[in-house]
Design a protein around this nucleic acid. Structure first.
Lengths: 329, 329
DNA sequence: GCTTGCGTTGGGAGCGTTCTCAGGGGTGCG
DNA sequence: CGCACCCCTGAGAACGCTCCCAACGCAAGC
């Protein structure tokens, strides 16, 4: 196999130039262990002169440490990476990792290959894994021994502490708001069945509707705008008298909005529409979208901090979601 | 330093269980080198039984190869990762990398720390780097010796082959379209000055306007919806008679659209609005956004393939951008 | 002056792989 | 029957780093 990497300064080189041993150079550069002032100076100068940078792979191999944090997004296709929710997680993780000189990687975790999660968690070069939108089946792939290297934003497991948003409560709030504003024939566009993050909102919807003795109108979506359009068409077709729609993601809500506009249905007069997540474009639609804003950034910050520190304790305070009232509902 | 990684099956273990030497086990598992059928079977069985997976760090150290491809996005803050353009690059890269068992990492490349790019390119655990939206200054950090490990989606350098979109041509097409539909007082909302990807569209705009002896109306934006709103307000303020706006990104165009709607300005009757990039929501706005679609996916696919193969040749065919005519212009 | 102790240093073993090299055992050919 | 050849194998040296351990020199204490 080719070795395409050109010769670069190694610790050995730095030591030679500084006139000390490799051990001393290592001690100086890692900051661990004693070293005389003169040795310290000479090594630092040599490193500077040679443009030395430690090899992350070698360091990971020697220490068992880890140089990067991986945000692993579960899903059926790489397209799941294209999600505002994920972006917010990555952003928060990047901010936590930057001062510690830990890189952030974003990777797709195919639903059909749960063992890849174990690989990721076992990889010496990864410091920790932040799983997003995972399933019980995938979490089962993480053995208890790997405990502490993996944290989930979503559901958890005995081996994987969970930092979750109260999406059930947020959904409750939204459906209740629709009810309180006089809506009685409320439909809900859900996400794919396999996603735990759609199950709780669905349950919340069913609960609120059930308590008010109102009919359940569930339509499956896929979290995309196109899926939202299709779902809205289905709703108009099956239940033409629907007076409110709660979509489990803003993208689907915006898709629904586009369909209603094209059909000449008034929003919110004829049909109220509410989304979920508060993506940036939600404020710009016509009419502007009523939705729920989850503290994803803060949760992700807590999760990233926990996994970097190998802490097992979820955050003490749960950050509540917030109802964002705009024009559409 | 703690060694938090629990004991896991190593090649040595597999060899012992299979009753062969480490070398033979390695040969069988990598597929390189000869091995008898029985050895092959025994090693495979042992690996299966122990749940063996090679340690990426150790493999990277030994081969100098690399296990992941890094998509590095240059910018002033981690927020640049939150960009539909970047998402499309990551997606395409993930698709190219998946069959080769190469992971994809997304990392922010701070504008003020160009040396991090060299670190990235030197890291043995990275197979290659895909730079997005870079500057000449950052590219200068890549020494010629690292040639072939780095590829740019955007401008290039002697050491970094470039796979670029013809955004100048696309901008020309858009401005010409506005002109052809009778607009004469056309303003443009640009991106930040430091971004090369805004310079060519600006030049194209100036060229088309200059050729028609029309006045130049440039307003700076920041590629976000909020920036687009601010820019639109500035345009209405400074040049109330403007009859067309070309925004250098869809997000800014959608922001502009929101401002015009709030002001009661008719689009496209009073003011035509055109965007750039064709993000998913562009089709859903009211009115739907006229924009240009760049073959980002195909370019990124070519770039990822090139960097994985260490090829130095840019793709033979340039993929043209496409004018997406919708309602706003 | 000899021992004790501390601060500093270098040697060397490991981390888990890959890959080169030399040797061993079988088969085919002369 | 002997030799050459080839297939297979294992020993061992890298890769670049960290870290344990033993040794060194030097000052202080008895």
């Amino acid at each position: 196999m080719a070795r395409p990497l050109p010769q670069r300064a190694t610790l050995e080189d730095v030591a030679r130039v500084a006139g000390v041993s490799r051990s001393t150079a290592s001690r100086v550069l890692t900051g661990f262990g004693a070293a005389s002032l003169s040795a310290r100076d000479r090594v630092a100068a040599a490193a500077e002169q040679l443009g030395y940078a430690p090899d992350p792979a070698a360091r990971a191999l020697a220490t068992g440490g880890g140089v990067r944090l991986v945000v692993a997004v579960a899903g059926t296709e790489p397209g799941v990476l294209h999600d505002p929710y994920v972006d917010r997680v990555v952003r928060a993780a990047a901010e936590v990792c930057a001062p510690r000189e830990v890189g952030v990687s974003l990777e797709w975790l195919p639903l059909h290959a749960p063992e890849r999660l174990r690989r990721l968690a076992e990889d010496r070069s990864v410091r920790g894994v932040l799983i997003v939108n995972t399933t019980e089946r995938i979490l089962a792939a993480v053995p208890a021994a790997l405990d502490g290297r993996t944290v989930s934003i979503g559901i958890g497991s005995p081996a994987v502490p969970s930092f979750d948003v109260d999406n059930g409560g947020a959904a409750s709030t939204i459906v209740s708001h629709l009810y309180d504003s006089g809506r009685r024939r409320i439909a809900m566009v859900t996400g794919p069945d396999w996603m735990p993050c759609t199950r709780r909102p669905v349950r919340a919807y069913q609960q609120v509707m059930g308590a008010a003795a109102l009919p359940i109108r569930l339509v499956p979506g896929d979290f995309t705008a196109a899926g939202g359009q299709a779902a809205m068409l289905a709703i108009l077709d099956r239940w033409p008298d629907t007076d409110a729609v709660f979509a489990n993601s803003d993208a689907m809500a915006l898709g629904a909005l586009a369909v209603l506009r094209r059909r000449g249905v008034g929003v919110p007069d004829d049909v109220a529409v509410a989304g979920f997540d508060d993506v940036p474009f939600a404020a710009l639609s016509a009419p502007a979208l009523t939705t729920a804003s989850h503290p994803v950034g803060r949760i992700a910050t807590a999760a990233a901090t926990a996994v970097l520190d190998r802490a097992r304790t979820p955050p003490a305070t749960a950050y509540p979601s917030e109802l964002i009232l705009r024009e559409s509902a």
